[in-house]
Design a protein around this nucleic acid. Sequence first.
DNA 1: TTGTGTTTTATTGCCTCC
DNA 2: GGAGGCAATAAAACACAA
Length: 306
Amino acid sequence: MAGGRVYRSNTSADAGSNNLSVLLQSQWVPSSSEPLDTLFIPGSSPSPFLGTRSMVSFEGVDRRRSYFRTFDEEEKVEEDIEEYLHRSEKKRRLTVDQVQFLEKSFEAENKLEPDRKVQLAKDLGLQSRQVAIWFQNRRARWKTKQLEKDYDSLQASYNSLKAGYDNLVKETDKLKEEVVQLADKLLLEGKEKGKSELPDAKTSSQELPSEAAEGEESKVVPEMKSDYTEGVHSSVLLEGAGSSYPFEPDQSDLSQDEEDNLSKGLLHLPSCVFPKLQDIDYSDPPAGSCNFGFPLDDHAFWSWAY
DNA sequence: TTGTGTTTTATTGCCTCC
DNA sequence: GGAGGCAATAAAACACAA
């Protein structure tokens, strides 16, 4: 590790001490960043957390030596020593009490100021570096959990929105079908009325498609009877016909042609009024005036729709 | 007992901030 | 340039089924 961190092993504990197993939990201390007070001195702390879980015994091993290591300057002897020490000095888990204490501390504040770190280390009989590492790992676990929570929450709101959207699609289909049926009905009535009242009714009826027209600039439907000028369908139809008020068409606003058509039993509708569902492009928010009741600026809706 | 998956502890390299 | 944070990763410890 050229240019990497230099670690110093903390091997000054007394072999054979009652608390040795815990006191020796840490293996490497960053020599450049850790103050001397991180070197735990046996017997200096009345920590209640010590000695509950013996992990590794170094009895009979003279470990009263400290040394520095860098990856650049390792000699054979040191390698041997290190290998030996590493074999013996295995990773050790913190005791239940230590973990509980750390957890409480983490709940209070998940960042660790230097003073707190040192205090915690003292209280727990750990090295401050170990405390720092524990907090680091704990933050990582917390972040992972948080991501899982966020994912679940997003998934739930997506499912809910999707269900709402599916319902709207069904409802739209149903309404569309209803409109087609009503349009057919009007067509028939218009024909019959035209036969009896208008001499040129035949010509007019020939302009009418059997269904609400598809893919054309305009659509032609017969004049609304009063029965059909109420409610959602008629309002939509009349709005599409250019009326300034969707429920009561003001004939003064109509052009001469429109008035003519009305008098002939015809209305021209822009093609956007009743597009087929399959003609709707969900990949982009709709531009223009045909938004089917959805807010034009509701990009969120269109972005999740597809 | 052993193989395997998960959790925990620790290291490393990079990045940011002061 | 040093200190500290984070992501990625290694490896020990642990849990558990076969």
